[in-house]
Write a protein that binds this DNA or RNA. Structure first.
Lengths: 237, 237, 237, 237
DNA sequence: CATGAATGAGAATTCATTCAT
DNA sequence: CATGAATGAATTCTCATTCAT
């Protein structure tokens, strides 16, 4: 259960991130250069520690799982004190949530910009898939959190995880709907199809994370691409 | 972490199950009818309690998740005592593992027999999918354990879960390989394809478990079936 | 703040006490002597530990104050484990509350029976006062809890403490009201008078607890008695 | 427990107060008017902040109790920083002690001057009582600290509180002794009587603080006055 | 076999205090 | 002087597991 001091963790976490962002980019013209320098130093230090904690948390959660990871472990790994962590985060959940959001944001933004850059509608799906596999491949520990630990981390996270799942499915669904509308593919149940696509990618990546196969995640791309294309009736010439 | 007295819980559990099975089916001819009657009563009672515990565990794990479920909760729910549970199971992990195996066995056996009963090679996949969806639909709480709680339940279960995932993928892979060999479908990377298929089904079912959509899981069957068939190049006339 | 598992601590505590009492006195006729003996042994052991914890708590709370007393301290002092304490009490508050109720009950019951035994209306007040001073004198550590620690122990206890204060004032008020009705004394504001009487006794006892003066609390009796009697217009001949 | 660097907090606080007082009243003739002006401004600012902290502390301690009040809370309420508070006070205890002294001083000085202004010996007690009730009524939060939180705030404060209690009892005792000496009242144990008087007033006021009865504390005056007067043998004509 | 009392190693979280900037 | 980041000891409470009865 979330405690009363932090009853809407997501918004809080976003606030934290926003606040951090704003702080970092603020340059109050009313303070002199010397002062500004000092403030920047402080912010830089603060930011450094913030991300040191996040990195440590990624490692620890990924190694032990959410429940088995102790805040003490994260403190140790991040070279901070327990109190230090609680200065930056209201509780353990919040750290995990920030990490989840981080990975989700990373994946989404990369996939979206890759699709935006690709003019050919037919190829949009391909580049998105490729980008996602690359992103997963480049963040193996975060990927572990995202795909392995997150669902089972506790009731508290289930809703948020389903929202995240839904948002990715939505991305896919929009793409499929557009393809249907433009006549590129025949009508189909895009609701189920998008979930299935997401699940297919998920499982291939999860397998890679947990068993190391295929050695390079990207190797799965061609086969996966063809599978997905075919599943909606796109046939290779 | 597994403690030293029980460092391969899975084998232990199988031993337990075997032992139990043996006990139940033994009829030592050297004891008289009266005695035998008593023993059977005892066995029946024992078996009853054993499954009461499993049922309770299903409920409790599904409601609270593996880590948050206390052995006390299971004792309460199963109308036993903590000590009673520890008579039947060496530890908490073992209970969870038995449930996992139970679900996996259920799915596998039903899918296998459905496929065995279907002579038409092309339709074997369909009946397997349909059977699995039906089985999931009929055991929502076990399904939750299997798909949501199991992965994140802790490092201890990851290996076993991947084995289970692998065994299902293998089932699918064998089917696809056979279809390729028989020339029904064109050659493809069945390794990836089987993982993708499994993942696709997983996600659709997980979505149903966590969000209740679609209301009846079986509704997803036609769309999913077409998607999977097409993905391997089988085209509806 | 009281946590959700124990949101009406008083009733819970009373239930605990009642349950204990009932358990102790139950002799289920359906079990044999041997069994009964065993059960009694268990109960006796249980009761012993329960009161060992209470005794330890009295000492520790009295020495360190409610807030500064750690459950660990009580565990140490009672030769139990922390877990053992939490087996008998749901939380730290509950231990303190039981102690408070115990002292309040002791005082009230002794005062009431002393008054009941004294036929002379005029002397009822005297014996009550004397009995209370004796009771306080005989339980110095409990008295400390009751008069010094309890009020400041935290917001959670304030309401209950005022109820206890009120109940004692009520005792006094009833006595005064009766005296007024019977014409023994002239009408007066018994509401204020009873609070004042209670406060007067409180302060004298508190002074004794904290400074050791007078050496024997009972020495204060004659002066206090005369003071209180006079305050309501009863003049010594 | 007091830490070694500040093992006699009370004296330290008095030193602080003295130092502050000296600072405020110092006008070093060797500095020019401009400088002096600056210093005065600074002193004024300093004094302002000092009392802002005290006010905030009154509120916070009264709301949460001594132990549960965090220095952070006081910092927030006083619009200062934690560091700022530690500039003015050596530790949390000191803040509480200053508040206690403040209330005690207020009560004592008002009572004393009221008595000094009243020439009629018989009426001195009345005006003292009335003044005290008025003072309590005018500072409800401070009163809460003084009567409810102080005793249970921790072992550290017990001695000082008993000194304060004693000093008030002394005031009363001196008055009673004088009355005895002057033959106004018959000899009595003024030691006990003064404690009882103090306790009687305490309880009536505590009841008001915690339960809100009587609505106006001053309403209790007539009844209380008569009670106390009679208790020492002064009878209304 | 069943019970449930007992244990004790953690777990998350709080907060007075310090001190570099 | 003021700030607030950092520390880490201390606290309450939980729970898997054991074992005497």
């Amino acid at each position: 259960m979330l405690d009363s001091k932090f009853n809407d963790p997501f918004n809080k976490v976003l606030l934290i991130l926003n606040a951090l962002f704003v702080t970092i980019n603020t340059t109050d013209e009313s303070v002199g250069f010397r002062e500004r320098r000092k403030i920047l130093d402080k912010q830089a230090k603060s930011q450094l520690r913030f991300s040191r904690i996040l990195d440590a948390a990624t490692t620890v959660f990924s190694q032990k799982g959410y429940k088995d990871a102790a805040v003490d472990d994260i403190a140790l790994e991040s070279q901070t004190s327990k109190g230090g962590i609680y200065f930056y985060f209201p509780n353990k959940q919040a750290i995990f949530l920030v990490l989840l959001e981080k990975m989700a944001g990373l994946l989404r933004s990369r996939a979206e910009s890759a699709m935006a850059e690709e003019p050919n509608v037919l190829k949009k799906g391909d580049v998105a898939l490729q980008t996602m596999l690359q992103t997963f491949a480049g963040h193996r520990t975060l990927t572990r959190l995202f795909l392995v630990e997150a669902l089972g981390a506790g009731r508290e996270f289930n809703d948020r995880m389903m929202e995240i799942h839904a948002s990715f499915s939505k991305l896919i669904k929009d793409y499929l709907d557009e393809a249907v509308l433009s006549g590129t593919i025949a009508p189909l149940n895009t609701e189920i199809a998008s979930a299935a696509w997401f699940g297919a990618v998920n499982e291939v990546v999860t397998r890679w994370v947990l068993t190391g196969q295929p050695a390079q995640l990207e190797e799965a791309y061609p086969a996966l691409r063809e599978l997905l294309r075919r599943s909606i009736g796109l046939v290779e010439k």
